[in-house]
Design a protein around this nucleic acid. Structure first.
Length: 167
DNA sequence: AAACGGCAAAATG
DNA sequence: CATTTTGCCGTTT
């Protein structure tokens, strides 16, 4: 049985993101979907717990800063309990990359103590539940090219451009 | 047990 | 250089 999640929208100039909250904190962030199915139904605003309301304020500000290419000052507590140990290590390493900087998949692999797991690192990045705030987009291929991006390379390119990174 | 990736270094033409 | 192997590893089926 899974803990019920509360879902709240964040309207930005790039579209409406959806933030997922568990009892422990921010557990997921979805990119805007052009009027599509919309993964899950939003939690009615008046049904949000006070803790979630507070976190959501923080998430909203952080997301807007991140989309503008700035550093995120405060983040709500993150609930990454859904990930494997390896994934959590990778996500932790991603969070250390400052805006405007990039790393290769192999560099991340080294950073988590598994020098030969470049490919597996790619998988972990794709499984990142909180894109943008956990900057999976700052990981590029060793040859200087973009590499891949589950949510669509256009986003990866846009996010990096906002931070002043040229590919 | 097998297949599949957001990879990368080496080998090839 | 541009392409094609050939290893590699955590996840997923």
């Amino acid at each position: 049985m899974k803990t019920k999640l509360m879902i709240a929208p964040i309207r930005t100039s790039d579209g409406t993101f959806l933030a997922h909250y568990s009892a422990r904190g921010l557990a997921g962030l979805e990119f805007p979907r052009g009027n599509k199915p919309g993964s899950a139904s939003l939690t009615p605003a008046d049904a949000l717990s006070t803790a979630v309301r507070r976190w959501h304020l923080t998430t909203t500000k952080a997301l807007k800063r991140a989309l503008a290419g700035n550093v995120t000052r405060k983040l709500p507590p993150l609930d990454l309990s859904a990930g494997t140990v390896f994934q959590q290590k990778v996500w932790g390493a991603l969070r250390k990359i400052a805006p405007g900087e990039t790393r290769s998949y192999a560099q991340i692999a080294k950073a988590v103590g598994r020098p030969r797991t470049a490919r597996a690192v790619g998988g972990a990045c794709g499984a990142n539940p909180i894109p943008v705030l956990i900057p999976c987009h700052r990981v590029v291929a060793a040859n200087g090219q973009l590499g891949g991006f589950t949510a669509g390379l256009k986003w990866k390119h846009l996010l990096l451009a906002r931070e002043g990174v040229a590919i």
